[in-house]
Simulated assay, not measured.
Amino acid sequence: MKKLLFSSLLLWFSLVAFDASGQGITRSTVDSLIGNAPAFSIHKDNFFISGIPINEEITRSTADAKYQISFKQLMTRNTLPWDTYLFLTYTQKAFWNIYENSSPFQEINFNPSIGFGKPVYNKKKKLVGLASLMLEHESNGRDSIFSRSWNSVNLEYSLMLNPKLKLTAEAWVPFSYKSGNPDLLDYVGLAEANLEYDIIPKRFMAELMLRKGLEWNWKGAYRVRIFYRPFKMSNQYFMLEWFNGYSESLVNYTEHVNMIRVGYVIKTNELDILKQ
């Protein structure tokens, strides 16, 4: 049943991907938008969700809450060579055993980065994508046998495949990770793809994340998210999330997780420039 649902999702996203994409906006418009954009903004989605496992018994210990806080600070505008700009980001993701006695945190992951962003244009000087090159660190701030951390150089590219479908692909070159988690790449791999489809633009959306580990097996992960915005003048949504796979958190990256959660999200508009 799970494989059938997963295959159906892949087929659906593949079919809608072949529609023609929009023409994009001009270089001068992009320069103006970047020049007038807030220096401080949301980077990844900020959310608080809670849910239950669907592959084991539901108890106070297996149900949990997950939340994420993420922001971005522009250090420069599009004034650096090759139309690039410098930015800092910080993302913090927490797994909270909120239903247990004393409500302990299972883990908190800290993920700062510094990087360069660049709009990408076609021969007609129309925007076709956004690229970024980042130096990232991620760790869980723990010691002893529970310590997990890794560093990577990440290359990310986002584009519209058609007026409703956005693809973000990210690849990384990891380093300084083998002391605490030498087999990490067997679970997180070297790349990730995210597809977001506007079922009803700015009201009802679906998102699919895919990640594959390095070995020739099924270790990896996929995540499905459904967003619904109840209020017109807002970037606040309700979100249903299904995560199935490995490395959702660092401390338990070798353990298979199959969780469904629901909650509240403040969505980022970082890539909305591609939809104009």
Rank of each mutant, 00 (worst) to 15 (best):
Thr26Trp: 00
Asn154Glu: 14
Tyr157Trp: 02
Met205Ala: 12
Ile49Arg: 05
Glu192Lys: 15
Ser8Tyr: 09
Pro119Gly: 06
His43Gly: 10
Asp183Ser: 10
Ile108Lys: 03
Ala39Ser: 14
Lys72Gln: 14
Pro112Gly: 00
Arg148Trp: 13
Ile25Gly: 04
Asn36Thr: 13
Leu10Asn: 13
Val251Glu: 13
Ser132Arg: 08
Gln92Arg: 10
Ile25Thr: 03
Glu170Thr: 14
Asn109Arg: 11
Ala37Arg: 08
Lys202Asn: 15
Tyr90Met: 12
Gln92Ile: 01
Asn111Tyr: 06
Ile25His: 02
Lys124Asn: 15
Asn101Asp: 13
Gly245His: 06
Gln73Glu: 06
Asp272Thr: 02
Ser234Phe: 00
Ile54Trp: 13
Ser247Pro: 08
Lys93His: 07
Ala63Asn: 10
Phe243Ala: 03
Ile42Asp: 10
Lys232Ala: 15
Ala39Asp: 15
Leu274Ile: 07
Leu184Ser: 04
Gly22Trp: 02
Thr76Pro: 05
Leu271Phe: 07
Glu170Lys: 15
Ala206Ile: 11
Phe116Ile: 08
Asn46Thr: 02
Thr29Arg: 10
Val30Gln: 01
Tyr121Met: 03
Leu33Val: 12
Lys126Glu: 14
Ala65Leu: 04
Asn244Thr: 01
His256Ser: 10
Phe238Tyr: 14
Tyr222Trp: 15
Asn162Gly: 05
Val153His: 07
Met205Val: 05
Met1Phe: 10
Glu248Arg: 02
Ile199Ala: 01
Met205Glu: 15
Leu9Tyr: 04
Thr79Trp: 10
Ile260Trp: 13
Ala191Trp: 14
Lys93Leu: 09
Phe116Met: 11
Pro81Ser: 03
Ile108Pro: 03
Phe110Thr: 05
Thr29Leu: 11
Met259Ser: 09
Ala193Met: 13
Gly189His: 02
Arg223Thr: 11
Trp216Thr: 13
Tyr264Val: 01
Tyr99Asp: 08
Leu86Gln: 05
Leu88Trp: 13
Ser21Glu: 03
Thr26Ile: 01
Lys202Ala: 12
Tyr222Pro: 06
Gly35Trp: 06
Leu127Pro: 01
Asp186Leu: 09
Met209Lys: 15
Ser7Met: 02
Asn269His: 08
Lys178Leu: 10
Val188Gly: 09
Val262Asp: 06
Glu255Gly: 06
Phe231Pro: 09
Tyr90Ser: 11
Met239Ala: 12
Arg148Met: 09
Ala171Arg: 05
Ala171Gly: 15
Ser234Leu: 00
Ser50Ala: 15
Ser7Arg: 00
Phe87Tyr: 15
Gln23Thr: 10
Asp272Ile: 03
Ser249Tyr: 09
Arg27Ile: 08
Lys232Trp: 00
Ser247Met: 03
Ile52Lys: 12
Gln68Asp: 00
Arg225Ile: 11
Val251His: 09
Phe48Ser: 07
Leu271Pro: 00
Phe71Cys: 12
Thr91Cys: 04
Lys178Thr: 14
